[in-house]
Simulated scan of single mutants.
Amino acid sequence: MYNKKIGILCWEENAIPKGVAKIASLRGSAVNKESYDFPVVIKRVKGANPETIIFNPSENTLISMIYEMQNMVKTDDVYAIGTSCGFNAIHQTKLANAVNVPVFASSLLQVPLIAKFLKENQSIGILSARSKSLTKKHLYEAGITDSVSLNILGMEDYHEWNKLLVNTNDDIDLKIIESEICEASLELLKVNSHIRAFVLECTDMSPFSAKIREITELPVFDFITLAHYVYSSL
């Protein structure tokens, strides 16, 4: 089992914001091989960057992702493929149709399952890199229906976090990033005290999942929990 590999698609090399590159050094990052208990193949996708994935999803970038996925299946012998940005949920159906291995484009795919774990009057809190870009189509493609109770909070109004998407050449303070993510999770609980689980849309939040669990005392699901779930089935 543990010789099988999973492929991970990520942003092209010259498009990585300085802060994202810093987070990538942390265990828990989707592009850090130490985050996984199994072998992974990481492939950078031509044209994949915040503009073409988050702000204005691009068909050309989708084509590039499909090309890299098909190559990974053919040459790297991967048994499943994920992507390192939760906003790729919008392409879930097309990506899954492109190859003959399981594809998990976003941590949001866990939401329908988690909803079944909870009582009908309980809710799921979603922390997103940018809630303004998280559309109903993203949710629909992840299998999330209107029957699922959600509270979504975006990090775009948090100063340090916003450097990851807007001021991409600026360095970041990881302690402040952690503090902002924790503050956002507590803010969600203030909005809805019935939240009983968190899902982190953004893979750059995964290194801070343990801290969110600690301060909220609630389950936290992220891209890494999804990847290990998928791998356990192979």
Rank of each mutant, 00 (worst) to 15 (best):
Q122I: 11
R130P: 00
L134P: 02
K116D: 15
Q70T: 14
I114V: 15
A96S: 14
E68T: 07
K94P: 01
V103E: 03
F87R: 03
G86Y: 14
P112Q: 01
L134K: 02
A80M: 01
K119F: 01
S133P: 04
R130H: 04
F87S: 07
L127R: 03
S128I: 07
V78M: 01
Y79C: 12
A129H: 08
S84W: 02
R130F: 07
D77R: 08
V103M: 05
K136V: 00
E68C: 09
H91T: 05
A98P: 13
N71P: 00
K74L: 09
Y79P: 00
V78P: 00
F117A: 08
G86S: 14
L109A: 11
I126K: 00
L109N: 09
H91V: 02
A98Y: 07
A80N: 05
N97L: 14
A80I: 02
L127P: 00
A105R: 13
T93N: 14
D76P: 11
S128T: 15
H91A: 09
Q92F: 10
S131K: 05
K119Q: 09
S84E: 01
L134Y: 11
A80W: 02
H91D: 05
I63L: 05
L118A: 02
N88R: 00
N121W: 02
L109W: 09
I63D: 04
V111K: 00
Q92P: 10
P102T: 07
L127S: 05
T75D: 15
P102S: 09
V99N: 12
Y79T: 12
T93L: 13
R130M: 07
